[in-house]
Design a protein around this nucleic acid. Structure first.
Length: 645
RNA sequence: GCUGGCGUAGCUCAGCUGGUAGAGCAUCUGAUUUGUAAUCAGAGGGUCGGGGGUUCGAAUCCCUUCGCCAGCUCCA
């Protein structure tokens, strides 16, 4: 019998008889490792602990704490769920059940919907299976044999999968009554699962195809310890508290009204102020970075959208055209044609390029009912849009300028983490794109060079490009770690040609310019929603709708309090005087709940010394300071526009 | 659009198997004159999302429509 040479993580090499299982190798290293290991990694490939080792290579044992082990663990937990479902609901047919970033799910076909109550029963059944330490047993079938078996069990979804994906001999895992067509690996037995919870049930479609079987998806999560699970559940709670829809109501920032229609935003005075501050900052930056500000109509003749191609490519997302004097007009879903018309309004020289036309352009897009979500997915929104018309040789530096601008946005609003994606065309489906292969290659190359030149790590996403050109997307990561896609920089060689754009080059001949579409905040609405959640409603001073509230201790101090408020107001501080007939405590509480940065308390002592007692929303009482000093101090802080306070 | 859940006062919610609505907060009025996270009392406020139906009778049952929530799909 031949041997295999196994390299341990410490670099030492041991020899074992061929066919030894990973678990036995672990045992030979130490009983504790064998007890803790969940799965093994041989030569970079994850394998079951029970898997026989047939060839030499480096081995590693993954124990609780490892991210890869957690994925396997959750995948096994999905199987545990399926096993419990088959015990309690024999009429359910399993679909697929993978781990996800935060847990796992399993899809089932079943006539009757699962209820909250069913989830609790399933959890109890799962706990039972964990307690019984039910093993996960790997078995092999030939394709025909397996198909026959799953067909006999009535698992028509599994049969479809096997039909499509199975190798001639495929693996399956058995957990109690549940048998799954599955590549694995899995943890050895369910007794290893320490903490899990079923979270929700929601609809899904078989293979993501909305015309296919409707399935019910049970979501759950699992962690190595109860503490980690509890921490996760707390984090979910925290995210709920930050929900911009809830905070938008509580802080009176915006509303969405059934009377007006879904996906349409009403900015209330307090939200309006935040928006104004954001826009002011943005316009200053745009001008400083060589953009020109333009305004274009909201409704334009439909034929423009035919020229641009939107009427064809984008029809499903456009509001219906309206009939006007024997012509048809279209509410704009995009700003590009408007900016193009400005470019086209006269002959352009290469000396004018790059021409950067920026507009806070409000667009309307028809989103399918059911996809709207607060401020984050709406039917009417304002893009901080710009179109850069330039010569081909200017593209890289323009794209770089956009990316640098995007980083300035991140910094200004206190986001310190981000992810970058480069979306390219899908080489399998050349027909989905407009433009020639050479143009695409050149454009993708330009974007990639720019990112590489700037030393920015990015993810390459083939098949994610839009029809008219490749793009760079920048996702920012908020205060509690969630990514949001806002910034997009898109290359376009289609529209300039469709609209016949030209510029006169140094050679005296006309050439076609290149166009770059870019939005940094994406849409003001979505950005506002992200910002609300990022700051949990506690906007930094420069953005805060109310920056200071003056609180007279009693009616006696009203005169001095209004003087304090006037002084601040004159210094253009957004200040409110809370002279309601309430206890000081109650008014402090209200200001605190409204997340007002400064609470200025004035009573006898302050009136006598012309000072104010300063309370900060984040630090509480910070002591008494002279009024004049406080006015200057607050004003200065506002002007700094710092991202965190 | 699809699957499931939901829609009761400005807000958050209660209202068992059908018998024409209730709490807390908010609002208003009065008392209280307040020193760093909720003073007390009284009052007003709802055609129970809209429309249709079943019934002697509907917030409650059925149909339909609009909207919201979770997810799917989609997201230029």
């Amino acid at each position: 019998m031949s041997n295999v040479q196994i390299t341990l993580p410490d670099g030492s090499v041991r020899e074992y008889p061929k066919g030894i299982t990973a678990l036995e190798v672990a045992r030979s290293i130490g009983p504790r490792l064998a007890a803790e290991a969940l799965v093994a990694k041989l030569d970079g490939r994850l394998i079951d602990l029970s898997a026989p080792i047939e060839q030499s290579g480096p081995i590693q044992f993954l124990t609780p704490g490892s991210a890869e082990a957690l994925e396997v663990y959750r995948h096994s937990c999905a199987h545990l769920l399926a096993a419990a479902v088959l015990e309690l609901f024999p009429d359910a047919h399993p679909g697929v059940g993978p781990p996800t970033e935060t847990g796992f799910y399993y899809d089932f076909y079943r006539e009757k919907p699962f209820t909250e109550d069913d989830l609790r029963r399933l959890e109890a059944k799962m706990a039972e299976l964990v307690k019984a330490d039910v093993p996960n047993e790997r078995v092999y079938f030939s394709k025909e044999e397996g198909l026959k078996l799953f067909a006999e069990m009535g698992e028509f979804l599994k049969c479809e999968l096997i039909e499509e994906k199975a190798e001639p001999v495929f693996s399956a895992y058995r957990t109690g009554k549940f048998l799954d067509f599955c590549r694995g690996p899995h943890i050895p037995s369910m007794g290893r699962i320490k903490a899990f919870k079923l979270l929700s049930v929601a609809g899904a479609h078989w293979k993501g195809d909305e015309h296919s079987y409707p399935l019910q998806r049970i979501y759950g999560t699992a962690f190595f310890t109860q503490e980690e699970l509890d921490a996760y559940l707390r984090q979910v709670e925290e995210a709920k508290k930050r929900d911009h829809r809830r905070l938008g109501k509580e802080l009176d920032l915006f509303s969405i009204q059934e009377d007006a229609g879904a996906g349409l935003i009403f900015w209330h005075p307090k939200g309006g102020i935040v928006r104004k501050e954001i826009e002011d900052w943005l316009r200053e930056e745009l001008l400083a970075r060589g953009y020109d500000l333009v305004f274009t109509p909201h409704v334009m003749r439909l034929h423009l959208w035919e020229t641009s191609g939107h009427a064809n490519w984008y029809r499903e997302n456009m509001f219906g055209a309206m009939e006007v004097e024997n012509d048809r007009y279209q509410v704009k879903p995009m700003n590009c044609p408007g900016h193009i018309l400005i470019y086209k309004s006269r002959v352009r020289s290469y000396r004018e390029l790059p021409m950067r036309l920026a507009e806070l352009g409000t667009v309307y897009r028809f989103e399918r009912s059911g996809v709207m979500h607060g401020l984050l997915r709406v039917r009417g929104f304002t893009q901080d849009d710009a179109h850069i018309f330039c010569m081909p040789e200017q593209v890289e530096s323009e794209v770089q300028g956009c990316v640098e601008f995007a980083f300035a946005v991140l910094k200004q609003f206190g986001f310190d983490r981000y992810q970058v994606e480069l979306s390219a065309r899908d080489p399998q489906r050349p027909g989905d794109y407009s433009g020639t292969a050479e143009e695409w290659e050149r454009a993708e190359g330009a974007l990639m060079n720019t990112l590489k030149g700037m030393d920015i790590p990015f993810k390459y996403m083939p098949g994610e490009a839009v029809f008219y050109g490749p793009k760079i997307d920048l996702k920012l990561v908020d205060a509690i770690g969630r990514p949001w896609q806002l910034t997009t920089v898109q290359f376009d060689f289609t529209l300039p040609r469709r609209f016949g754009l030209e510029y006169i080059g140094p050679d005296g001949h006309s050439h076609t310019p290149v166009m770059v579409h870019r939005a940094l905040l994406g849409s003001i609405e979505r950005f506002f929603g992200v910002l609300i959640e990022h700051y949990a409603g506690a906007f930094p001073l420069w953005l805060a709708p109310v920056q200071a509230v003056v609180l007279p201790v009693s009616e006696k101090h009203l005169a001095y309090a209004s003087e304090v408020a006037d002084r601040l107001s004159t210094a253009k501080v957004r200040v409110q005087l809370d002279d309601r007939n309430e206890k000081l405590n109650a008014r402090i509480r209200d200001a605190q709940l409204q997340k007002v940065p400064f609470m200025l308390v004035v009573g006898d002592r302050e009136a006598a010394s012309r000072s104010v007692a300063v309370r900060r929303r984040d630090m509480g009482d910070v002591g008494v300071r002279p009024l004049v000093e406080v006015v200057d101090w607050v004003r200065e802080l506002i002007d700094k526009r710092t991202a965190t306070w």
